[in-house]
């Protein structure tokens, strides 16, 4: 029986695969790499592509990953998969969107925001009334 290595494929949202494998093939940034047991410590970024886990018995499990990181220790391989394709401009667009929403929120003095303020004022008024009532009861 060939030497096996432990493989964990995880994404931020869930665990995708965990088990023993004879060989792990991953799309590293500078080209596809194959990792077998007792590989030297290795750390690389991953491109979007297919990772394959070859388990003992010759069966191969393919996984599509949209980029991430690959970490190799002599007996453990970890693939930290991104949950979606990440590129600089996509991230940038997301950031701009978040900023825009914040500005909108600050500019928007009508509708929902006023509602939140009104709610706060209502709560305040209710507490004041309650204190007044208590005070009255105390005097009566």
């Amino acid at each position: 029986m060939a030497m096996t290595i432990h493989v964990d494929i995880v994404s931020a949202e869930s665990e995708i695969y965990s088990g023993l494998a004879e060989l792990v093939v991953a799309p590293a940034e500078l080209g596809e790499v194959g990792i077998a047991a007792r590989h030297a410590p290795f750390l690389s970024r991953l491109k979007p592509g297919e990772a394959r886990v070859k388990v003992s018995g010759g069966e191969v499990h393919p996984f599509y990953i949209s980029g991430g990181l690959l970490e190799v220790q002599p007996h453990v391989v970890t693939i930290l998969a991104d949950t979606a394709i990440r590129a600089k401009d996509i991230d940038e667009a997301a950031a701009l969107e978040a900023k825009r929403r914040a500005e909108e929120l600050l500019a928007d003095t009508s509708g929902k925001i006023d509602y939140a303020r009104a709610q706060a004022q209502l709560a305040e008024a209710i507490t004041q009334l309650r204190t007044l009532e208590k005070y009255r009861k105390g005097r009566a």
Partner: peptide, 28 residues
């Protein structure tokens, strides 16, 4: 709602993520 009503300095926001939020929703 709360922090805009007290006039806090908000530089980014993400809302309505639902019960199954995804990482992409908050990257921004």
């Amino acid at each position: 709602g709360f922090f805009s009503s007290i006039g806090a300095d908000i530089s980014a926001q993400a809302t309505k993520l639902g019960d199954r939020p995804h990482l992409e929703n908050i990257i921004g």
